[in-house]
Design a protein around this nucleic acid. Structure first.
Lengths: 345, 345
DNA sequence: TTGTAAGCGTTATCAT
DNA sequence: ATGATAACGCTTACAA
């Protein structure tokens, strides 16, 4: 254990509170003593103990970043940006992967333990209640998600896209190209209320609106798209195989992430078909992989940078007493060649 | 702020230390009082405050995971496994991205602040000194890296592959296929001592050993492979364009990660050449992307799961007073079709 | 401008 | 088996 504030005080011949004032710039100190203290701090490499700080009722200048699945590249990109923004403002970031857990419980726990100033939750579900936010009791921004309509909008902020609408858009795009037999690959159970499901609902609505009857056989769930250490590809391959053997007339696939779309592309090649000649594909998110794969994917691009910056800004606004905000970003439909009009075939 | 141990004591009509004993199972308590206390704990949702715990000299059952670049998919995979293993042992994981910072300084800081039991550093550099580990003063495992030879091996553990050897192997594989003009794309400056550089050195040695004169023009550094929020592809594309225009006779490329290899593949397609017909490529790490891209990449596969499990196990061993260990894993050269013998062309 | 002292929520020691 | 009480390192009134 390093030296404490007490040691610094003794070593520099001043009182404890003076040292505290120096390192926190939290009160008047004569230039002379200031230098004396800093001298000792430098020489002995004194580091204030955060746990002790957190113990006092005052907030700790740290923000928690709770992530549902830290290996998700889309979330990863935003993570980096947010972390940097938070550091720029002189705050500390506590990162926590909450994949398998209840993120609200963890948020409460951490808020208490570390005396947090705020929380950003990325990619969770949204079965939150008013009570959840009341109990949390510190500024909270949901990123990529929103709470249910019933939850009081003044209790939290959110930054996201309209997943249902964009799912609709993805499907509509393929429909506009003349496709009628359009599959959707999604990940089922646990995430009952997730962005994935919303995108899926958009897909279903798009079909209906265009007079295409929804066929449940075309929307199989794959069992969990990223195993802890296993790979997902084999599962997708199996799904695609079934999809193509049972209903030979499929001409397009929609899905909820670029990553899965890349897997689907590979699966299609593997069974001897081509993209986009035989089957058209559209991805979701617009992460780099969608650009560098072969062929590059058409995709629904989310403005990750802007979303990350907004989330951070809103959080710090709230920490200064500002109001909650709810921002819904528009996406951009990137056309890069993984789908083609059905007539051309 | 939730209720404290004091409140629980009052509410259940017992002393503070009794409550402490109950929740920590750290002393004799009558079954009767135990139930009384637990009753209150449940009812009011009491959560012990970790900061307060950390303040006491006793260790806090938390381990820090320091990562150089959290968006690296290879590190990400191991991260998930380690986190799970740590949780399984009843410990808390503190994740921190140390991309832009000095990981040792942060390790010391966190060790003190959170009263850590141990640290795992993933993907850092290795300009560490004896002093670094002495000052850190808690069990430390380096994952994917090792400290310099000069550093006392009893001060830390390490789990990694032999990057120089495996870089050699990658290059040698292409040489064995008849390639002579083999490029290497790497990321230069800051990482002077990183795994990347070792792999590069292996590549150079392989060339020499096989009587191929090293041509610096074939090993350009790309400026930084993952911008904070920018994409790397354009940079690689430029590098490949130059490489192919200046020295038309290149037939193969080695690089330090699958991700970059995928970018290179795309760049090659973009300028109108084919993989592996015109140019052979081998990746590094063996992450999923190397399998699902087109064509699937030959790559040097690192046993990520085993490495992650080893690192965790060694750390907990050390925490129980066990010795330091230094494990070097072998890789597997996966041949999936992104390189071909030069004669076949 | 500076120092003293009272907490913050725990755990650990020591009586009881 | 149980309950005071003294730390742990820090911030912050309040006093000097």
């Amino acid at each position: 254990m390093g030296i404490t504030i007490k040691d610094v005080a003794k070593l520099s011949g001043v009182g404890i509170s003076t040292v505290s004032r120096v390192i926190n710039k939290s009160g008047p100190v004569s230039e002379e003593t200031r230098e004396k203290v800093m001298q000792v701090v430098q020489e002995y490499g004194y580091i204030p103990n955060i746990s002790a700080r957190n113990l006092k009722s005052t907030k700790s200048k740290t923000v928690a970043l709770l992530i549902k699945d830290i290996t998700n590249p889309f979330l990863g990109r935003m993570l980096r940006i947010i972390e940097r923004e938070i550091a720029l403002r002189g705050y500390l970031t506590l990162i926590r992967d909450v994949s398998a857990e209840n993120e609200m419980e963890i948020a409460r726990q951490e808020a208490q333990d570390y005396n947090l100033c705020g929380v950003i939750i990325m990619g969770g579900y949204f079965a939150y209640s008013d009570d959840d936010f009341h109990q949390l009791d510190i500024p909270c921004v949901l990123l990529t998600i929103s709470a249910d309509e019933k939850v009081n909008k003044n209790l939290y902020s959110s930054v996201r896209i309209d997943d249902e609408k964009e799912g609709y858009r993805a499907a509509e795009y393929l429909i506009s190209l003349g496709h009628k037999r359009i599959a959707y690959l999604f990940r089922p159970p646990e995430n009952e209320k997730s962005t994935h499901v919303l995108r899926y609902k958009g897909y279903v609505r798009a079909l209906c609106d265009n007079g295409i009857s929804f066929d449940a056989d075309l929307a199989p769930g794959i069992q969990s798209y990223v195993g802890e250490d296993g790979f997902v590809f084999s599962k997708i391959l199996r799904a695609i195989q079934e999809l193509c053997s049972q209903c030979k007339d499929i001409t397009a696939v929609v899905t909820f992430s670029d990553y899965v779309a890349v897997c689907i592309t590979k699966a299609i090649f593997t069974i001897g078909l081509r993209v986009p000649e035989d089957i058209s594909i559209i991805g979701f998110d617009g992460v780099e992989i969608a650009e560098i794969c072969n062929p590059s994917l058409d995709t629904i691009y989310q403005p990750a940078t802007e979303m990350a910056l907004s989330a951070t800004e809103i959080l710090f606004d709230m920490m200064r007493g500002g109001p909650t905000q709810h921002i819904v970003y528009d996406t951009v439909l990137l056309k890069r060649g993984s789908s083609r009009a059905i007539d051309e075939i």
